[in-house]
Design a protein around this nucleic acid. Structure first.
Length: 624
RNA sequence: GCCCCUGUAGCUCAGCUGGAUAGAGCAUCGGACUUCUAAUCCGACGGUCGGAGGUUCGAAUCCUCCCGGGGGUGCCA
């Protein structure tokens, strides 16, 4: 038995509509119940009568009236009213509202955990592809969103009770990797590189030089010929091209050696992997994102599966040859003319091949019902191709039950600098993630020191980490994923408006008031937990109604893979709480009953804020 | 060329399957602190929702065309 007004009202409307229209009621007709947009229209509104009227060919207000004649909500609501073209407005009775809030005031905060097999919220296995670092490269802003958004989506699904498997799709295989591995191995063999003290920065340096070394400057050579730039320039370029060809050939040997599992190459390669990943995990810890070794599945782990996948596709006629390459046509499924290439004409595999293998493993081995890719929007076409090809190949068939796994590209836009160009350093380099995080923490620490000088230094530093990192993550999560956004420390750390620190501060105010209740009034959590709720002031009512939205917001943010919905909600909740906090004295309330009631509202608000922030991967400090 | 994304207040952005007078924050202006942490709150100002058609009782939302911005486009990942 629920006290959730939305659930109750939905049921009652369903009954009323059936009673009013019987067999004439169209399939899927709904009351379209939602919280009112404006308090003057009551607490909830049902918009379904108007759509229903169209389908029944009757005047909307008449339909609304017919529903009302069969609607029985007198136990929880005042007399419903028809307004405008056919809205039905519902105002809850005070007792119903406090009962609903009291019901929600539980450890689960009103979110029914997913369960199997036949519950309303079926437990699913959700694979989240996130982070996506590359071997021998430092993390930079480009990894920020893949990590922050992916982690938030994983947390949201965990919160709903799903089985979540994170997959850090580590770019540790292929020709570019062979280039750097070969270069470093040669350096070690020649005694110019000490394998003991290699850092990621070193690796990145070698990665770049290896890339450059293997890239013949054919355009330069062509220019020399075109403009007759003289024998010296020509000789230099010819030498460069010859050198590049040799380096490339050497790298290809390296690739073959790696593919064959050659011990001397593998040792170097493993060390490069280790150094890269340790740096990655360190950054993720600093970012307070849950990405670990167990969650890391490098592209190399698919290497034995690639020939299998290709052979499977070829033998079953899913793939076909075209211009020497092996492709899967997807135009029939998607209307997209560009096919999915899974093998090059030289026999090499492509990243689509690896992604096909990954889908196969994730659905068949990991048992995914849903695979979510937190990856840059520029990969949009690639994923459409791979998803379609995987579907065509039958790789999305669920291992449990009927149907197919859902493959979802949670695409995100670019992080821009203040100049509206992709965020880079002045010299045009990628901004290192660790630098970015350090600066956020430093700026937050300065602000905390100004605002709250009494905070002990050790705690101040911890708070700065929560606030600085929270600010970055919230800025990333709070607007629609697909859009680009401008990275601005000033805006995200002003602590005003829709920012992480604003939410953290609202939560801190709750903590503060509860501490004070305990220390100065000897009121304990247990006294508050069962206190009767008195909801009379407009600010109390607004806060109560806002609190009730929480479970459905978490669900919708997870289902749509849109964390910004939760952000927007938490901001509204924090705003409602701040208004309540200003307008309604809590500890100085007029009566003990009111004091406890307001403490309970505050406590619940604090827990929802904390829980919501946790779903976003943002810490909620005790003080700030 | 084709495809995808995007265009809402001076700035940054919400607006969920079409619903009531399009909402916040910042900025600007005016109020509220011997505090429950003012990192706050209350109020004012501010928008032909890129443009033009169309569908609808009703369109920022759906359809068509056009314009601006970004991105992607068969053998890199």
């Amino acid at each position: 038995m629920t006290a959730d007004p939305t659930a109750i009202l939905n049921d009652r409307f369903d009954e009323a509509m059936k009673a009013a229209f019987g067999d004439d009621l169209p399939e899927g007709a709904s009351a379209l119940l939602s919280p009112s947009k404006n308090p003057k229209f009551g607490d909830f509104q049902a918009n379904g009568a108007m759509g229903l009227a169209k389908r029944l060919g009757k005047p909307p207000r008449e339909v609304a009236q017919a529903i009302l004649e069969h609607l029985n909500v007198s136990d929880i609501a005042e007399e419903p009213e028809i307004a405008g073209p056919g809205f039905i407005n519902i105002t809850l009775k005070p007792g119903a509202l406090s009962a609903a809030v009291a019901e929600m005031d539980s450890p689960e905060l009103g979110i029914e955990p997913a369960a199997d097999p036949n519950s309303e919220f079926r437990k699913q296995t959700v694979v989240v592809d996130l982070c996506g670092v590359n071997l021998a490269k430092q993390m930079h802003v480009g990894h920020l969103r893949a990590t922050v958004i992916g982690d938030a989506l994983a947390r949201l699904n965990e919160r709903l009770g799903h089985e979540v498997i994170r997959q850090n799709h580590f770019g540790d295989w292929g020709l570019p990797i062979a280039m750097v591995t070969t270069a470093i191995k040669d350096g070690i063999d020649a005694g110019t590189i000490d394998p003991q003290d290699l850092t990621v920065a070193d690796l990145e340096h070698y990665y770049r030089s290896a890339q450059a070394e293997c890239a013949p400057d054919r355009r330069g050579l062509a220019a020399v010929e075109k403009f007759a730039l003289g024998p010296k320039a020509r000789a230099e370029l010819e030498e460069q091209v010859a050198g590049a060809e040799a380096a490339l050939a050497r790298a290809k040997e390296g690739l073959v050696a790696l593919q064959a599992g050659d011990a001397s190459y593998m040792t170097v390669w493993r060390q490069i992997c280790h150094i890269t990943l340790e740096d990655c995990f360190r950054n993720c810890r600093k970012l307070q994102a849950n990405v670990t070794d167990e969650a890391t599945a490098g592209e190399s782990t698919y290497r034995d599966e690639l020939p299998e996948v290709v052979h499977d596709l070829e033998s079953r006629g899913v793939a076909e040859e075209s211009d020497g390459a092996l492709i899967v046509r997807i135009e029939d499924l998607t209307g997209i003319k560009e096919p999915c290439l899974i093998r090059k004409s030289d026999g090499g595999y492509l990243y689509a091949t690896t992604d096909m293998a990954a889908i196969r493993r994730r659905v068949r081995k990991l048992g995914a019902d849903r695979v979510i890719y937190a990856v840059d929007s520029r990969q949009g076409l690639h994923f459409k191709q791979v998803f379609a090809a995987a579907k065509k190949a039958g790789y999305t068939k669920l291992i449990r039950g009927e149907g197919e796994a859902e493959l979802f590209h949670a695409a995100f836009g670019t992080v821009l600098g203040e100049d509206n160009r992709p965020f880079k350093t002045r010299s045009g380099e990628n901004v290192r993630l660790s630098d970015l995080l350090d600066e956020a923490i430093a700026r937050a620490e300065k602000a905390v020191a100004e605002k709250n000088p009494d905070l002990p230094e050790a705690e101040r530093h911890e708070v700065a980490k929560a606030v600085g990192i929270g600010a970055i993550k919230y800025a990333d999560l709070s607007s629609d994923r697909i859009k680009d956004y401008v990275f601005s420390f000033d805006r995200m750390l002003t602590f005003e408006g829709n920012t992480g620190p604003y939410l953290q501060y609202a939560q801190v105010r709750v903590r503060s008031i509860l501490r004070k209740a305990e220390n100065e009034h000897s009121i304990r959590e247990a006294d508050i937990a069962e206190a009767p709720l008195v909801i009379e002031q407009p600010e109390e009512k607004a806060l109560a109604l806002e609190l009730l939205k929480y479970p459905s917001v978490v669900r919708s943010a997870a289902d749509s893979c849109e964390p910004h919905r939760l952000c927007g909600y938490l901001f509204d909740l924090a705003t409602s709480f701040s208004s309540f906090f200003t307008a309604c004295p809590v500890l100085k309330a007029d009566s003990d009953e009111l004091r406890l009631s307001r403490l309970r509202l505050a406590s619940l608000t604090g827990r929802v804020l904390r829980d919501g922030l946790n779903c976003l991967g943002i810490a909620a400090p005790e003080r700030m």
